[in-house]
């Protein structure tokens, strides 16, 4: 058991060493090439500080743009994603447990999920005009499918013995969904949620790039128009950091909720084949 924390610490160290090394290389290369389009990371960080932080305690030392661009963008992306999660999981579990309903809807779902999500932006732009409504509709419709299909798959993974067990003990309907179907589907659901989160962020940026008057995507577009590439890179770094943080937060939640799963190292070799 003492091996594990040590290995984890080593992995952590290795990861950030590689990262630091890459940043140093990036710094050197950009300084040598001296390109307008690719500022060195040290400069980007400086711009980040100037962009987002102010000496104003009343707004928690955060610049206006944090409240006017970053938070609204995040709220839309996460809000859309949450709606996606609720709709996708409940609909997916229902479809996964009802063969007939699934057969009726399968071709329709197959087509809808094949539509490249950005192609939905013009549709909702015409329907709702520019604004949060259009963005959230795009995110919900575009990011729904991974959660939905993974939930269907997960719900189907409840095997015959478990169904028989639950029935023979006369498990109530709610307990059956809450304590059997849902946890059985959870590993798959999380896989779907992660993909959907990535799609939500993409669609958030994309819809803001195409048409909006505020938000992270809008700021990136604006810095292109004004040829301020340092600013643009600052926003790109922010996007990367947000994506990284959100994804890791989701992973942490996943590890917590799937704590019951056998750890890979600890599991006997046969567990893989048997599971």
């Amino acid at each position: 058991m003492s091996e594990q924390p040590r290995r984890r610490a080593l992995g952590f160290l290795e990861r950030w060493l590689v990262f630091a090394g890459a940043v140093v290389v990036w710094e050197i290369v950009t300084r040598i090439s001296d390109s307008v389009f690719f500022p060195p990371p040290s400069k980007i960080v400086q711009f980040c500080a100037e962009l987002w932080f102010v000496a104003e305690p009343t707004q928690l030392f955060l610049a206006d743009t944090v409240y006017e661009d970053i938070l609204p963008s995040l709220a839309r992306a996460l809000g859309g994603w949450l709606i996606t999660a609720v709709v996708g999981i409940s609909l997916g579990l229902a479809l996964g447990r009802s063969r007939i309903a699934y057969e009726y809807l399968n071709p329709l779902v197959t087509f809808l999920r094949s539509v490249p999500p950005p192609a939905l932006i013009p549709v909702f732009m015409v329907a709702f005009g520019i604004g949060a409504q259009m963005q959230i509709a795009t995110i919900v419709f575009g990011a729904l499918w991974p959660v939905l299909l993974n939930s269907v798959d997960g719900a189907r993974s409840v095997d015959r013995v478990k169904t028989d067990t639950a029935r023979s003990f006369r498990i109530s309907r709610t307990e059956w969904i809450r304590m059997v179907v849902f946890p059985a589907a959870l590993p798959k659901i999380f896989a779907g949620l992660r993909t959907s989160l990535a799609i939500s962020l993409i669609l958030m940026v994309m819809s803001e790039l195409v048409s909006s008057n505020h938000g992270i995507g809008y700021r990136i577009q604006l810095s292109q128009n004004t040829f301020s590439f340092d600013t643009m890179w600052a926003w790109l770094v922010l996007l990367g950091a947000l994506g990284y943080l959100l994804n890791n937060a989701l992973l942490a939640l996943e590890r917590r909720m799937l704590g019951w799963q056998p750890k890979r190292e600890a599991a006997p070799a046969t567990a893989k084949a048997g599971g």
């Binding site: 290795e14 890459a22 940026v205 643009m232």
Partner: peptide, 20 residues
């Protein structure tokens, strides 16, 4: 490790830079 840091940037955000 590197990809882990690059991947979270949605590629669509690079569109304005690429167009320039």
């Amino acid at each position: 490790v590197l990809v882990e840091f690059i991947r979270p940037v949605p590629p669509v955000a690079l569109i304005p830079l690429l167009i320039v």
